[in-house]
Simulated assay, not measured.
Amino acid sequence: MTSSFRVEPKHWTLIAALIIAAYACYLLIEPYIGAIVLAFIVSLLFFPLHKRIEDRIGQRPNTASVISCVLITFIIIIPLTVVAGAIIEQGVSFFTRSYEWLNNGGAKQLLNNPQIQSSLHFLNQWLPFDLIDPQETVKKLAAWMSSFSGQMLEFSSKVLGDVTDFFITFMLMLFVLFFLLRDHDSIIHTLRHVIPLSRSQEDQLLDEVEKVAKSAVLGSFLTALAQGAAGGLAMWAVGLPALFWGTMMAFASFIPVVGTALIWLPTVLYLVATGDWQWAIALLIWSVVVVGSIDNLLRPFLMQGNSGMNTLLIFFSLLGGLHLFGLMGLIYGPIIFSITLVLFRMYEIEFERFLDRQDNA
């Protein structure tokens, strides 16, 4: 004889209290949610290697988790420190040369170019706003560059603060990661026990979260690295600091719609203004065909291959995620969309008879 479970009033009271308590706990950890989610993503990506370490050293989960966290620290921190130092060096060198070029009359010489003069004349005739005065433009540029040292000092202090925040977040992420790796099996077992779904539905839901979390990292960050590398190569070819501008293009790739054009388009215009037409055309073609294709082909391929979402859903999940959550929205957005799709498929299966009856009514 089978008995069916009946929800009584005391159960609703318990569920309501549990929801309130869970929300209160969320408010407590909300400032650190980014580090927790990062730890969760890194644990998914690193768990196969961690499992091999654990099997190699025997049943010592604490030691295995410590080794994994140390490895991750060396994999992330050392390359990041070297690259950041090179980026800062190239950036400071570029802006120093730009300041010297301006003081030596480079801007005046550029604006006296006949092609620039004819372009300004055309713009002044047709643009609806105030006339562009070359001499006034040079003065404003000189005034801005004269305050550049102060701006760089302020920027340096901000970068120092951001670096400090990054290390604090990274240490917190490592702390959470240690427990996620060590207690992986018990955490999964607990989740399966408390989620009121069948085992197949739990498997489907957890597998989808794991796949989409991995694909979001691959789709967004690997695409940014690929675009940064391709853009940096192009900047090196035209004689600009490759690592600095390549990194800027990698960051710009996270910006929806505009993307890397925020970096390469002004560079093309600069090359046109200085008379380097061949390099300008080459950079334009490379940026549109190669750098643009990476974003249009690689990102949807990496994300769609694991998550099963079409390109339109991927686009809005990334766009909405960035709008609501910032950079972490590149992970949150696809996860929210994919969970919704999985729940919708579960709904279709559970209510299949009802839905078929409605269709035939």
Results as ranks from 00 to 15, higher is better:
P241I: 02
W236H: 12
P266A: 12
L269T: 11
G259T: 03
V257H: 10
L243D: 04
L233D: 06
V268G: 00
A250Y: 01
L233W: 10
P256K: 06
V258K: 09
A250T: 05
A224S: 13
Y270K: 08
V238S: 05
Y270S: 09
G231H: 02
G232S: 11
L240Q: 06
G228Q: 00
G239V: 06
L240F: 09
A226W: 07
W264E: 00
T247R: 01
F254L: 11
T247M: 15
I255N: 10
A226K: 09
Y270F: 15
A237C: 14
G231D: 04
G246I: 03
W245T: 06
S253W: 00
A237K: 15
I255F: 11
Q227C: 13
G246P: 01
M249H: 03
W264T: 05
A230N: 10
P256H: 12
W236Q: 14
A224P: 03
G239L: 06
A234V: 07
G259H: 02
F254C: 05
L233K: 08
A242G: 11
A252H: 07
L243I: 15
G232W: 02
T247F: 15
G228K: 01
A242H: 04
V238H: 02
L233A: 14
I255G: 08
T260H: 11
G259I: 04
P266K: 07
V268R: 00
Y270Q: 09
V258D: 07
S253G: 06
T267N: 07
T260G: 08
